[in-house]
Amino acid sequence: MSTLDIAYHRQVEIAAPAEEVAGVLRDVAGWPRWNASVARIDRPASGALTVGETIRLKQHRLPANTWTVTRVDGSGFVWTATSPGVRTTGDHQVRPTGPGRSEATLTLRLDGPLARLTALFGGRLIRRYLDLEAEGLRREVERDTAR
């Protein structure tokens, strides 16, 4: 059986340095404060996000899922979660676009034999949640920068 790779992307311009934006993204324990799609984050570790770490994420209208961090660097992080027939990869990257400005790119990639079915029934919610994450991130960072 062949697999299908489907990706959703959301980019947002933010009036803050890339390092600040990436720091807010990597602080996943704080996501419920600014990301309206997130109901709860259970992160057993503290301190900096690390490769191999697992984090339990509960989003509204979805079952809780365990994400494993696969990459962390100064520009963001990547994590993956698996469910029957689908592997989901979330990529959170930030790049500078000018003095005190940056662009965050949020990507959710689905692959596996049930990726197409997941996209068919869940694509609208995925796009909505990426919008909520992007706009929440922008508001959170710009509010912090204004202080």
Rank of each mutant, 00 (worst) to 15 (best):
V51S: 08
V141I: 04
R61W: 08
D42S: 13
G100N: 11
T50F: 08
G76S: 00
V51C: 10
E13K: 12
L117V: 14
L120V: 09
L25R: 01
T66V: 15
R87Q: 14
Q93C: 10
T68I: 06
E13C: 09
R61N: 12
F77C: 01
L25W: 00
A119H: 13
R95K: 13
V38R: 01
R138E: 04
V38F: 04
A64C: 07
L132W: 13
T68C: 09
Q59L: 12
G30T: 08
E135T: 13
A119W: 05
A16T: 02
V38A: 03
R87T: 15
V12T: 10
R40G: 04
L114R: 11
R139S: 13
F121T: 14
P17L: 02
A39I: 02
S102T: 05
R33A: 13
T80V: 15
W79A: 10
F121A: 13
A22P: 00
A48I: 07
T105N: 12
D73G: 06
G23N: 09
L49H: 03
S37V: 03
L117Y: 09
E20I: 03
R116M: 11
G100I: 09
A81W: 05
R43A: 07
Q59K: 14
T118R: 10
D73M: 04
R33E: 14
P32S: 00
R61A: 15
L110V: 06
E140C: 10
